[in-house]
Simulated assay, not measured.
Amino acid sequence: MTSNDEIGRELHTLRDYLRWAISEFGRAGLFFGHGTDNAFDEARMLVFHGLHLPLGTDPALLDARLTLVERQKVLALIQRRVEERLPAAYLTNEAWFAGLSFYVDERVLVPRSPIAELIAQDFEPWLSARPQRILDLCTGSGCIGIACAYQFDEAMVDLVDISLDALNVADINIARHDLGDRVSAVQSDVFDLLGGQTYDLIVSNPPYVDAQDLAAMPAEYQREPALGLASGPDGLDITRRILREAANHLNEEGVLIVEVGNSCVALDDAFPTVPFMWLEFEHGGHGVFAMSREQLLEYAESFA
């Protein structure tokens, strides 16, 4: 990269910095997959964040000139994105999920689950009634459970994770959304410390990346906590535990929703007699299944 001082002398307007950022991202061969899928949206996110401008800013401002301090701040963000391969969400400390803003940093994965679409649909037709108790298992930032708390405004929600670092971020988001009266962060290795608690809905986006995929991931994914990604040779170590134990923590009409992404093939291979119900998504995404408590009990011997 040319020095920031030299670049700052040649670039003047908001439009200049957007164009330059897009070019730098292309030159560096960045990977996009943490809230954006292209260089333009990524550049807009970082440049507008550096200038404290909303993403819907009037296009007429694109020709506004930046101050020296503003130019230095924007250049520093772009430089870190290129040189450190940090996902943009870690640079802005913000990610959006289910239409809601969440604080994120390098202690948690950047939210990107297709489960947001299921939340917006009230998990229909899987739930027979509005859930009163919800568990977000392997919660990370808490985005799934907090989005559920918005969707089901009378429900009590537990956000569970083994990582205290992740739970500290979840606590930030509980406070950010003023949900401390209904949402709680709980440390537990899967169900180990939940005692006899039961829920109407258990939703989980657990670690599910197999060893081969983990080694081949782009650098941006390597900046995320491995604890939130890796799950054994076939990506199913945590999912197997969930399948074995979830029925004990579901109420009679309870439902389990689990995302396993690309490990869906390995899951079908591991349990060939189990008819997993793989859900379809209008807005993209795959590898999410739904199972009732009744089904979990029916196939308990397979999961054991």
Rank of each mutant, 00 (worst) to 15 (best):
L194M: 09
I174T: 01
G232L: 09
P114L: 02
G232W: 07
L236A: 06
Q187N: 05
V110Q: 11
A129Q: 13
R241G: 08
A216S: 14
A155S: 10
V183T: 10
T239S: 15
D105E: 07
F191C: 02
A116C: 05
P207Y: 11
A216Q: 15
Q197Y: 00
A230P: 10
V186R: 12
W126Y: 15
G140H: 10
S231Q: 13
L214T: 01
A147W: 08
G180V: 02
A120E: 14
A175L: 12
I144W: 04
D161R: 11
L214I: 00
R241E: 11
G180Y: 08
V157Q: 04
S101C: 12
L194N: 05
Y150H: 15
A226P: 14
V190G: 06
V209Q: 05
E154K: 12
Q222S: 10
R107P: 12
V160T: 09
P225S: 15
D178M: 10
D200N: 07
N205M: 03
Q151M: 08
A166S: 13
E124P: 00
Q212K: 14
D234P: 06
S204G: 08
T198F: 00
I144M: 03
V203M: 01
R244G: 02
D178C: 11
D136R: 00
H177G: 14
Y221A: 04
D210T: 03
D213L: 03
A120K: 12
M156K: 07
A216L: 14
C148F: 10
D153Y: 01
I174V: 12
P225D: 14
I162T: 13
Y221L: 12
F152N: 02
A215P: 07
M156E: 07
Q151T: 06
S188V: 07
G195V: 03
P131D: 13
P233W: 03
Q151V: 04
G232I: 08
R130C: 03
T198Y: 00
G145R: 13
I134Q: 00
I146G: 05
R107E: 12
L135R: 05
C138G: 15
L201D: 04
R182Q: 06
V209N: 08
P207N: 12
D213N: 11
V160G: 07
D161C: 07
F102V: 04
A226G: 06
I144L: 13
A116E: 14
L194A: 06
R112V: 10
I119A: 05
E245G: 01
